[in-house]
Design a protein around this nucleic acid. Structure first.
Lengths: 165, 165
DNA sequence: CTATAATGCCTGCCTAGGCAGTCATTGCCG
DNA sequence: CGGCAATGACTGCCTAGGCAGGCATTATAG
């Protein structure tokens, strides 16, 4: 049984990890996209470009799984990137259902130009943190994320006995 | 000048605090709303109810500022809550522009029934964390949030000298 | 080989949220 | 008092994302 970090009778929204996560994530994204504005690029678009370039996910399905994004939305997002000649679609020969994505020169150029911006904003946000603190923060968020992923998997993956207690 | 926690040449999406924040926040919200589903309540709606009950924000404008939510969206959200008889609108006498919100009995009842669920999910997510670790996590996120709020304020609040360096 | 399931990508429909503009009310000045 | 900016709530318009369904292609079972 988990420790009772939060209790209903003493709960206040502001202290909640959920509140902190949401607020900081939101502000971080807003700040990054403000800097991205003149390039006309969304954070999501940039993340997709990053994943394609680094080979973390080069098909629509992979990107959706990796980023937990809707496949319909991903199709439309890639439509935009393609219409701006930032990525290219190419049907795979071995499996003609899948479409492999690759960056164009312009895509790589745009991506490269935006990476420093992201690092900059992240560093701004973490100003005053020591390297150890950042490591600790990353580690803790990682642990929490793993927890949540396991919980999500056990809820939907084994629906037979997951929700009953 | 901020420390260089992230550098363009060694940057990988997965290590990014932004990635961790977004993913964990998303999963947390999904999990809470899954539990809320049978009550037909959104996390945002619940947060609004919490704020109204605790007196943290009882007008639309206050809620928007506090939650950084769009005023149009907030109007519609409150429309829903009102149509379900969870909150009541009442024009203030002293300033007839503002509308004060208050929970109905049904609203309080629903709110109370959902608080344990939120605590439960939060505790699940933090399973394995010691009390000190949770405190540290809250503290670090709080610091980061403050940083970001200051940055946002200095960008938009004093545009004259905020963006130049 | 054939029928069925599964996978991948795409398309419509719906809702939530961001943005701009409107209207009523109040505060601020002359 | 009278005009004007500011504030608060609200309304349309647009876009992004979630959801369900469709089509093509591949895997699987018989």
């Amino acid at each position: 049984m988990p420790k009772q970090h939060y209790r209903p009778d003493t709960f206040h929204s502001r202290d909640s990890i959920g509140y902190l996560l949401k607020r900081s994530q939101r502000l971080l994204q807003e700040r990054i996209e403000m800097r991205f504005a003149e390039q006309g690029c969304t954070l999501q678009q940039w993340v997709v470009l990053m994943h394609v370039r680094d080979g973390l996910a080069i098909t629509v399905a992979d990107l959706c799984r990796e980023l937990r994004h809707d496949s319909g939305a991903m199709t439309r997002l890639i439509d935009q990137l393609e219409s701006r000649d930032l990525v290219e679609r190419r049907r795979t020969q071995s499996d003609r259902r899948v479409i492999e994505l690759s960056l164009t020169k312009a895509g790589e150029k745009l991506l490269d130009s935006l990476i420093p911006t992201v690092c900059d904003v992240l560093n701004e946000s973490l100003d005053g943190f020591t390297r150890e603190e950042v490591k600790t923060l990353q580690s803790m968020l990682g642990r929490m994320l793993t927890q949540l992923e396991n919980l999500a998997a056990s809820s939907s993956g084994t629906p037979a006995n997951a929700d009953k207690e």
